[in-house]
Simulated assay, not measured.
Amino acid sequence: MNVLDLIRAAGPILWVILALSVYVVYTAAVRAQVLSRLGRDPSALIERARAVTAESGPAAALAEVDRAADPSPAANVLRAGLSRADRGAGAPQAAMNAALLAEDARLYAGLSALGTAAQIAPLLGLLGTVIGMVRSFLVFSSTSSPTPTQLATGISEALVNTAAGLIVAIIAYVARNALRARADRVAVQAERVREELPSWLAPRMAPATVIARPVPEVALSFDGATPPPVTR
């Protein structure tokens, strides 16, 4: 019995597992490509934006970030904070928080689906195993002396489904963990920008120092003469 014969004998559950495997491989490949594009090191852009902010202000730094056209989450969070730098101390932080939530959704998209596939695949394999064993017992009920070929059909269905379900679960689990670790590394850069940008903008948002002018103080006298004002 070759591999094709085993697949034919494995029953309909195996085709469901094979379809799930195609979905797992496709999702993992797409997410790996997306994270590779988003995972470019933004350190040089961050340092350049810091220098431009100190020298020329947030507007010039925003123009520098836009000119770089960096699609990384760190660049998008930086762009959101700089674009609100002229609207008060709390506006950049709120804009960066909102941008970071959107970038997290983009980074971790599809990972929960891979986790679900890793949980479902062994259950599908177990279901195929149960169906195969039931088929083997039905052979005993239909004939008193079943042949090895008749028994092998149900047993092979059980074992092939079990193996296929475990293989798909392992692939999905490993891919999910690897992609999550990579997404975490990219998210750390965006978190760094959110924590550092307020300190860049703080010197420009500091309130101006008000110089108090001396107030003349008038001393009261009850002898009819008005003394000159005393200045403190």
Rank of each mutant, 00 (worst) to 15 (best):
V3L: 15
L4M: 10
D5P: 03
L6D: 01
L6H: 11
R8P: 00
R8A: 10
L14H: 08
L18K: 12
L20P: 02
L20D: 06
S21G: 09
Y23M: 11
T27R: 15
T27A: 14
A28Y: 09
A32S: 12
L35H: 07
S36K: 13
G39N: 01
G39F: 06
R40L: 07
R40Q: 06
D41C: 03
P42A: 01
R48L: 10
R50D: 08
T53A: 04
E55K: 15
E55N: 14
A59Q: 13
A60S: 01
A61P: 05
A63I: 04
E64W: 12
V65W: 08
R67A: 06
A68E: 02
A69E: 03
D70T: 01
S72H: 00
S72C: 00
P73Y: 11
A75F: 02
N76I: 14
V77Y: 11
L78K: 05
L78D: 06
A80V: 08
G81V: 04
S83I: 05
S83R: 11
A85S: 09
D86F: 13
D86A: 14
D86C: 00
R87K: 14
G88P: 05
G88N: 07
G90S: 08
P92N: 02
P92E: 03
A95L: 07
M96F: 12
M96I: 04
A98Y: 12
A102C: 05
L107M: 02
A109G: 09
L111M: 07
T116N: 12
A121E: 04
P122Y: 10
L123E: 07
L123S: 08
L126N: 04
V130F: 15
G132A: 01
M133E: 04
R135T: 03
S136W: 12
F137P: 04
L138A: 13
S142F: 00
S142K: 11
T143F: 09
P148G: 02
Q150N: 03
G154I: 01
I155P: 09
S156N: 03
S156M: 08
S156I: 08
E157W: 06
A158C: 06
V160P: 03
V160E: 08
A169G: 04
I170K: 08
L179C: 01
R180V: 03
R180N: 07
A181N: 13
R182G: 08
A183K: 06
D184F: 12
D184P: 05
D184A: 10
R185F: 10
V186S: 15
A190M: 07
A190W: 08
A190D: 04
E196K: 09
L197K: 11
P198K: 10
W200Y: 08
W200C: 05
R204N: 00
M205A: 06
A206P: 09
A208N: 03
A208R: 10
V210R: 11
I211N: 13
A212N: 09
A212H: 07
R213N: 02
P214I: 12
P214W: 11
P214Q: 14
P214S: 13
E217M: 11
A219F: 02
A219H: 13
F222C: 00
F222P: 00
G224F: 10
A225C: 11
P227W: 12
P227R: 12
P228Y: 01
P229V: 02
P229M: 05
V230N: 14
T231C: 13
